[in-house]
């Protein structure tokens, strides 16, 4: 019945529910400490760092619908891409340069799109749902590709102007501001998402994932909740997209379509689905590996990520965090 591996549910970390302790555990501060340490220790890698933070945010938004609510999508890039283009068009064409205004506009656009498309597609399931999610991101890819006067078409939209954050912090050449800005936005979104999955609403999402028929039978407004979480997830994805544009001062076609959606799925699966921090581990490992390997061995890189995906599905359905959990459980049993 469930689309998820057993490791992603009860007993696994951060599955939510009525008896889960919602307090932040000490391990949960580790990513933030690491991010702060990286700022000082690796100043040459801040643009890669910002990219990782942005994809963590994007993966977090996917985990909300995929890991918790069990909605499978091939088109999450639609919201990421729309957010990215809204920020880009505002900064490059319309003279709206305040980063937080751009962010808010991107979030609103993606959120509205999430409500509209969610209301349409969440009435379907299975292959039809997959096809619709894919078709929607392809619609936007077509628009971005063909509406060259607004989007720059295949050349992309360069020269996106982004004013200093809060009028104080200019986006510098070393990417210091970009890194801290992305980190701050990620932190806020993480906190909100975390509240959400520990809330009754979050618990009801896992109920929908586990058994939609029973959710109907206990009188839950299943469709409404799915559209709601889809819109929230879309909003966060839109914010992530806007961050990408702002930190690069550029937006191109590669934010839309099947490939970015597929890569995002790979990152999340690699880290672990429905565990909250799988969305942190996956993009971190994936993007660092990509930075080293993809340039040197582009063909093998694609083959490698495909192979890893196949192996994860066949042998390690909980992803990296699932492996860590299993290893810790084994250690505990041995010491006991």
């Amino acid at each position: 019945m469930s689309a998820l591996p057993p490791a992603a549910a009860a007993g696994a970390a951060h599955a939510g529910g009525y008896v889960a302790d919602p307090r932040v555990r000490w391990q949960e501060w580790l990513p933030w400490l690491l991010a702060a340490a990286a700022f000082f220790a690796a100043p040459d890698y801040l643009s890669l760092g910002a990219r990782i933070l942005i994809f963590i945010l994007f993966a977090l938004s996917l985990d909300l619908i995929l890991g918790y609510a069990g909605i499978i999508t091939l088109g999450h890039s639609a919201f990421f891409g729309v957010g990215a283009y809204v920020a880009g068009i505002l900064g490059a064409k319309l003279g709206v340069t305040d980063p937080l205004v751009q962010l808010a506009a991107a979030a609103a656009a993606a959120g509205v799109l999430g409500v509209l498309t969610g209301a349409i597609i969440l009435r379907t399931t299975g292959l039809t749902l997959l096809m619709l999610t894919l078709a929607i991101t392809l619609v936007f890819l077509e628009i971005a590709n063909k509406a060259t006067s607004i989007t720059g078409g295949a050349d992309g939209l360069a020269g996106v102007v982004v004013a200093p954050v809060l009028g104080l912090f200019r986006f510098d050449l070393y990417g210091k501001t970009a890194y801290l800005y992305a980190l701050a936005v990620l932190f806020v979104c993480w906190w909100l998402v975390r509240r959400l999955i520990y809330s009754p609403f979050g618990a009801s999402l896992t109920g929908i994932r586990e058994n939609a028929v029973r959710m109907h039978a206990i009188g839950a407004p299943v469709y409404f909740r799915m559209v709601a979480v889809y819109a929230i997830s879309a909003t966060i994805a839109g914010i992530a997209g806007a961050l990408l544009t702002q930190t690069h001062q550029f937006v191109g076609l590669n934010v839309l379509g099947l490939e970015p959606s597929g890569e995002l799925l790979i990152m999340l699966i690699l880290g672990g689905v429905g565990r909250l921090y799988g969305a942190f581990v996956g993009p971190f490992v994936y993007l660092i590996a990509q930075d080293y390997l993809a340039k040197q061995f582009p063909e093998y890189w694609y083959f490698g990520i495909g192979l890893i995906l196949v192996l994860v599905v066949l042998f390690a359905r909980g992803g990296i965090l699932g492996i860590v959990d299993a290893a810790r459980a084994r250690l505990r049993r041995r010491s006991a």
């Binding site: 995929l66 069990g70 689905v273 890189w301 083959f303 995906l309 599905v313 359905r317």
Partner: peptide, 17 residues
């Protein structure tokens, strides 16, 4: 369904490479 989707996407990536 999720496993099937991921698995076959993995196959696509490998085949493309």
């Amino acid at each position: 369904e999720l496993e099937q989707v991921l698995f076959t996407i993995g196959l696509i990536f490998m085949a493309v490479a």
